[in-house]
């Protein structure tokens, strides 16, 4: 239960300040339409951020379909054969981004660029910024996202 306006979910809280919350949501939604990175790859990165933040609600959310086996193996993606090279580069980048963005190495950035180019790296960073932001907002407000569908983890 959130502590700012009781009874509201995260998106309803965003709507209480529509001029800014709406702009944040617009940016969030725009990243899934970017041609530089597939929505499926971005969704895997969002789900991995949710795992790293231990946000079960965000992990349960589905912004874009990914296969059930990929969801199930996401935590152990380095050992799984289910992820493409592009997805692996983006997931490795995401993990360091989540912990300490200044620790990202040139090699990790180059691995992303090798698959999706410089534009893709910028697009990925923009997406990670709003994904991480929305997850943190939900956690600090103690407000769950709206429209959560349950998935087996």
């Amino acid at each position: 239960m959130n502590w700012i306006v009781q009874g509201l979910d995260r998106e309803q809280l965003l709507d209480r300040l529509p001029a800014i919350g709406g702009a944040f949501r617009q940016l969030y939604e725009s990243v899934f339409e970017l041609p530089q990175v597939s929505a499926e790859t971005l969704e895997l990165c969002r789900l991995r951020l949710a795992q790293l933040h231990r946000s079960a609600a965000d992990f349960a959310l589905e912004e874009c379909p990914v296969s059930a086996p990929q969801r199930a193996q996401l935590q152990d993606w380095p050992q799984s054969p289910l992820f493409s090279d592009e997805q692996r580069a983006c997931l490795a980048f995401t993990e360091v981004y989540a912990m300490d963005c200044s620790a990202i190495t040139d090699a990790q950035a180059d691995a992303v660029k090798a698959h999706i180019g410089e534009e893709g790296l910028v697009a990925l960073l923009q997406a990670l910024g709003v994904f991480d932001g929305l997850i943190r907002l939900g956690l600090i407000w103690q407000a769950k996202p709206a429209g959560v569908r349950q998935h087996g983890q």
Binding site: I4, L17, I20, G21, V122, L137
Partner: peptide, 21 residues
């Protein structure tokens, strides 16, 4: 809500700037 959203926004853009090297 303003404080929350501005921190979320600046945190993401600041991380982006750092990660771009």
């Amino acid at each position: 809500l303003h404080l929350s959203l501005l921190v979320a926004w600046f945190n993401g853009s600041s991380r982006c700037a750092v990660a771009l090297g």
